[in-house]
Amino acid sequence: MIATDAARGLIAEIRQDHPDIIFHQSGGCCDGSSPMCYPADEFRIGEGDVKLGDIDGVPVYISGSQFEAWKHTQLILDVVPGRGGMFSLDNGRERRFLSRGRVFTAQELAALG
């Protein structure tokens, strides 16, 4: 997963209040289809969750079923106007995180193995 400058800026803003955070995208209904930002010590990673990597030192996880659907896609963490998910730390900031995606090229897929 990669992030836009806007996403990196919102991450930095949130970390001023909550230095240790994680992202998780569950793929469920409602807020579950958006990347959610939580205090790291308040969210339990599941056995089926897949770590996509880190953005500015913040780990990013996705549910196993979401990973299977998106594994051929470069996920891009972005920010748009609006309210974040009820339990996400972007809530109340009038901006929210959003996952965008683009399909990997054949060369990128080969490099991923």
Rank of each mutant, 00 (worst) to 15 (best):
G113D: 09
N91G: 04
Y38D: 04
G92R: 08
E68W: 15
L98W: 02
G85S: 03
Y61H: 02
A3S: 12
G85F: 03
E47S: 03
T73F: 01
E108N: 11
Q74L: 14
M36W: 13
C30S: 14
G53F: 15
R83W: 15
P39M: 06
Q74T: 05
I11W: 08
G113L: 09
V58K: 00
F43Q: 14
E42S: 14
I11R: 03
D31I: 02
S65T: 10
Y61D: 00
V79A: 03
S88F: 13
Q107Y: 13
Q74H: 07
L89Y: 15
I14G: 04
L75I: 10
G28A: 02
S99G: 08
H24R: 13
S63C: 02
H18A: 02
E13G: 11
A106I: 07
G27P: 11
I11F: 05
D41C: 12
W70H: 02
S65E: 05
D17K: 15
D5H: 04
L98G: 05
P19M: 09
A111Y: 06
C30D: 10
Q107V: 10
R15I: 06
A3E: 09
S99N: 04
D5E: 13
E47R: 02
S26Q: 05
C37D: 05
D49I: 12
D54A: 14
G85H: 07
V50W: 11
S65I: 13
Q16C: 01
C37W: 09
F43I: 15
R96E: 02
L98M: 13
L112V: 03
A106L: 10
L98F: 07
D90L: 11
L10E: 00
F87W: 13
V103W: 08
E68K: 06
L75G: 12
R102N: 01
W70I: 14
V60Q: 01
C30E: 11
F97P: 15
H24A: 12
T4R: 00
Y61M: 05
T105N: 09
R8E: 06
S26A: 02
G32Y: 13
K51N: 06
G64F: 09
F67P: 04
A3F: 09
T4Q: 00
D49K: 07
I45D: 04
G101R: 01
I45V: 15
S99C: 09
A12K: 02
